[in-house]
Design a protein around this nucleic acid. Structure first.
Lengths: 197, 197
DNA sequence: ACAGCGACTTAACAGCGTTAAGGAGTGGCT
DNA sequence: AGCCACTCCTTAACGCTGTTAAGTCGCTGT
C-alpha cells in the first residue's frame, strides 16, 4: 500500500491519484474531501483486520480482550502511521458495529453489565491506540527506528535522574512485551473491579 | 493562547508570526523548523502543568497516579487539540525527567520494582493520552461538540446492533466519569497484579 | 570609524487541498 | 438517427502552506 511507502505526511491527493493513474481532482468525484478519503481508508483497514481473524464465540472474556487488542495493534503496526490514521478518522458505515456487538454480548455473558462491558472494551481500545501511537512515533515501521532517538544518549543526559534514566528501557524498547504487560494490567483491573473470572 | 482560537490545523507559521508582530521567516532564526517549535510548545504546556500543582511526597501510590493523570488530562483539555500536540511532539530538555524521577521514587517506596513502576506510569500515561485524543476528537474544547456527531442518529443507524447502540452513551458522553472509571480499572490492575496495597 | 553579529525583512519556491469549467464516453428515450 | 443526461475524468487556476535565499537595519566591541 502507498501509505507504507510515503507515510501519512507524504500521502497527498496527488500521490494517491498518481497511484490510481488519475489526476488529483478526479478524487473529488468519489470523496467529499481528503478526510472522507482517510475515513474510508481507516474503515478498510478495520475491515481487513476483522476479516483476517474471525472471533471464537467460545472465548473467555479474557481471551477475547487479548485477541481483540492484539489484533488491533498488529493491524495498526501493519501500516506506517497506522495509529494516527485511525485516531484521526471515524469509521464509515457499520463495519465496526458488528464486532462490537459480538464483544459486548460475550462480555455480558461472562457476567459484566453492559456499562461495564462497554467500559472494559473502550478502555483497552484507548490504551492500545495510545500505545501504538507512541510506538510508531519511535518506530514508524517494525524494526526501523526514527532518527535522533538514541537510548544511550538519553540516559547520559538524564544522569541527574537515575531512576528516570533507567526507566528508559522500560519505555522505549521491547514494545511487544510492554504492550502485553499493560494489557495484562488492564485485564487484571477489570477482573478485580468488576468481580469477574 | 493562539492555539485555542485556531486549533492545531490553523496554527500556521504566518499566524504565529503575526501574533508576535513579526514576519514568518523570522521564526526560523529561533527554531530549526515547525516541529521544533511544536516541541517547544508542548514542553511549555508540560511546564505549566507541573508548575500548577506541586506533588505531595506523602501521597500513596494510588493518589499519585490519580493526581498525575487527572492533572495531565486537565492540562491537555486546557488547549484545543492539546492531546494531538502532545503525542506528536517530544519534550526538549529535562523538564519531564524531574517529575518522572519523583513518581518512580514514590512508587518504588510503595513496594513496586522499578520496571513495575515504570510500566504503571507509562501505561496510565498512554491510556490518558489515548482517552483525551479521542475525547477532543468529539469535543475540541470542553462543552463545544464537533459537528456531525449526533448520538441519537448513531443509535438509529445501529438499530440492528442493540448492545452497540446502547453502549454509545458509555463512549461518547460524560467523559469525566468514564475517564475516572478507566483510570480506576488500571489502578485496580496494578494493585492486583503487582501485589501492592 | 568600522567590522561583526543578531534579528529581522522582502521575495520567492515548490507543493498542498480544493474549486471551476469543460470534455469524452455511455445509455436510454423519442 | 439525434439528443439528453449522467458518470468520470481533465486542465487550469486559486489561496495557502512550510521553507530557503539574500539583503537590511541597528547594536556592540575595538
Amino acid at each position: 500500500m502507498l501509505l507504507n511507502e510515503v507515510g501519512l505526511e507524504g500521502l497527498t491527493l496527488r500521490a494517491i491519484a498518481r497511484e490510481l493513474d488519475v489526476k488529483a481532482p478526479a478524487l473529488y468525484w468519489h470523496f467529499k474531501d481528503k478526510q472522507a478519503l482517510l475515513d474510508e481508508m481507516a474503515t478498510e483497514m478495520y475491515r481487513r483486520m476483522t476479516a483476517g481473524a474471525a472471533l471464537d464465540a467460545g472465548d473467555t472474556w479474557r481471551e477475547r480482550l487479548l485477541k481483540a487488542n492484539r489484533g488491533l495493534r498488529a493491524a495498526l503496526l501493519g501500516y506506517r502511521d497506522g495509529a494516527k490514521v485511525f485516531s484521526g478518522s471515524r469509521f464509515t458505515g457499520l463495519v465496526h458495529a458488528e464486532q462490537m456487538e459480538g464483544n459486548l454480548r460475550l462480555l455480558g455473558a461472562a457476567g459484566l453489565t453492559l456499562p461495564q462491558a462497554a467500559r472494559a472494551l473502550n478502555t483497552t481500545y484507548l490504551y492500545t491506540l495510545g500505545f501504538v501511537t507512541e510506538e510508531q512515533g519511535v518506530e514508524p515501521l517494525p524494526g526501523e527506528r526514527r532518527e535522533g532517538f538514541d537510548l544511550a544518549e538519553r540516559a547520559r543526559l538524564m544522569a541527574g535522574f537515575p531512576l528516570a534514566a533507567e526507566a528508559g528501557k522500560e519505555i522505549f524498547e521491547d514494545y511487544d512485551r510492554h504492550f502485553e504487560e499493560g494489557l495484562a494490567l488492564l485485564i487484571a483491573g477489570i477482573a478485580a473491579r468488576y468481580g469477574v473470572d
